[in-house]
Nucleic acid binder design. Structure first.
Lengths: 194, 194
DNA sequence: CCTGTTATATGACGAGTGTTATAACCGTAG
DNA sequence: CTACGGTTATAACACTCGTCATATAACAGG
């Protein structure tokens, strides 16, 4: 039972899904992309593609959550910065070919389709990220409703930026949005409104 | 030469692409979805899927631009409202199965892939929408840099919201973002900063 | 050595892919 | 009526899809 190989498959799946969307990422491509044998895929993931997609979304969720939680200990502005840095790094490292696997699932799969669990996991991931940001903003003085709105605004605008950056082949959009939301977060903490 | 049928195909392609992403929308599905004969697809679109995808993105771009331009005559806040209403209507009418075809292309296709022209058209669409919003904000008193940042923040957050709304099966996210960006637009016009 | 479990390789299944060639349909002009 | 243009239908091309059954390999403990 090699946990490494399994994780490698899940991480590779998340990456490839973020590049092409789930339906266009075939099991053969997913195996090849993560450098793991195709024959092992159904050994580790008896649920097939549905299971692999679900785990890939949850994997991304967990990774982002852990990085976000850690940086939020230094305050909400630092957390926002880290949230942006996560995606910026992925864009740069992939030459703007990869993006957010969670967004990819949300855009390409239906709630009632064959990957419904993955869509639910995507919804949960967005909810987790918003919740973490919102709680931190609240704990640092922002009113509850402003914190919730601002957290959602941050997550949505960053996800949208990542997609636009891919189309542009540049981090310009994400950097502009980064500047704007950091300022908004600062204002919210100082003046209690967005 | 039936222009209606051609347009019907393009509009149907845009809709189906927004639901599943471009690679998962087969030519047979695209024809069936728009109620047009498959045999005619390559007659009207000799460039095949690439051409159909490209025209679908441009079609969406044009539609949004025209609605946005018209409503911006009543001021930037009214324009923002219209921009949000476009996507809200699509979400509701499709029971949160459809979304933005332009985002869909940006997420599922590579700049160097077989639908490179469609990706370029997606980049242009985002740029057009940001440009319209930005210009209107500037013309109504917002400083140039604030107008540009805010316009991008609006487009990105709305695109992100549409995706999240699909995953949630609810317009909650879009409505919250709508409230936030309308307030931001108002502030930018009154105080000259975001 | 043998055994048993886990992991990988291979090939096959029916269905679907984009695309093209070819044949049939259709309304209208001559 | 015939002839012909723009359309549509159909079948086929080589290929890939997700999935599974089966066969082989690798490696543990006795």
């Amino acid at each position: 039972m090699s946990a490494d190989l399994r994780t490698k498959m899940v991480a590779g799946a998340a990456d490839l899904m973020s590049r092409r969307g789930l339906p266009a990422a075939s099991m053969r491509d997913l195996a090849r992309h993560s450098g793991t044998p195709l024959g092992s895929t159904y050994h580790y993931f008896p649920g097939g593609k549905r299971q692999l997609a679900l785990e890939a979304v949850r994997f991304t969720d967990d990774q982002v959550r852990s990085r976000l939680s850690r940086s939020l200990e230094q305050g909400p502005v630092e957390g926002v910065r880290e949230f942006l840095a996560v995606w910026r790094q992925i864009l740069i490292d992939s030459d703007f070919e990869a993006g957010c696997p969670v967004l990819s699932v949300a855009v390409t799969e239906s709630r009632a389709g064959e990957a419904a669990e993955a869509v639910t996991a995507a919804r949960d991931a967005f909810s987790h990220w918003c919740g973490l940001l919102s709680r931190s903003l609240r704990e640092h003085g922002a009113p509850a409703d402003a914190a919730q709105s601002l957290a959602l605004l941050i997550v949505t605008s960053v996800e949208g930026s990542v997609a636009i950056c891919r189309a542009e082949g540049s981090a310009r959009a994400l950097d502009l949005v980064a500047h704007a939301v950091e300022r908004l977060a600062g204002n919210a903490l100082r003046h209690g409104e967005i």
